[in-house]
Amino acid sequence: MEGLLQISPGLIIWTLINFSLYLFILAKFGFKPLQTALERREQTIADALRQAEQARAEAQRLQAEAEELRKKTHAEMVELLRQARQQAERIVAKAAEEGEQVKHTKLQEAEREIERLIAEARATLQREAAELALQMTQKLLATALDGEQHRRLIEQSLTYLERTN
């Protein structure tokens, strides 16, 4: 037990010498590069993290911007479509109306033309009938009646005819 429990000053002094020497060499040649590298790496990682955070925020901002832009574009598109449809409907309606009007005008014109033609025909027919009757009567009576009297007579009979017609 004596050997185990002895406190030898020699060993204490040697340990102090050894440990000091070891500490000096370790601190200077072994630990310093490690510490420098560790600090550099930690700095780099911290920087990278910060940059990643910034990049993430930037990406988020851009994404939000894009989303907003997309929404705006979509709304614009919808609005444009709506306007286009409205315009188309208006044009179609206008065209239909115009067509209707043209048709109507044409019809009226045609009607007027027909009436005019009828009236014309009728007038011609009256005149020719009167002429014919006059010639016939002249031939039959061979009498020289006053032209003026004849005409009145004939017109009276024509009016009568017309009325019966």
């Binding site: 406190i7 030898s8 000053p9 060993l11 204490i12 040697w14 340990t15 102090l16 440990f19």
Partner: peptide
Amino acid sequence: AIGTTAALAI
């Protein structure tokens, strides 16, 4: 050994 540990404690 106590010598070693004592030196470290010093």
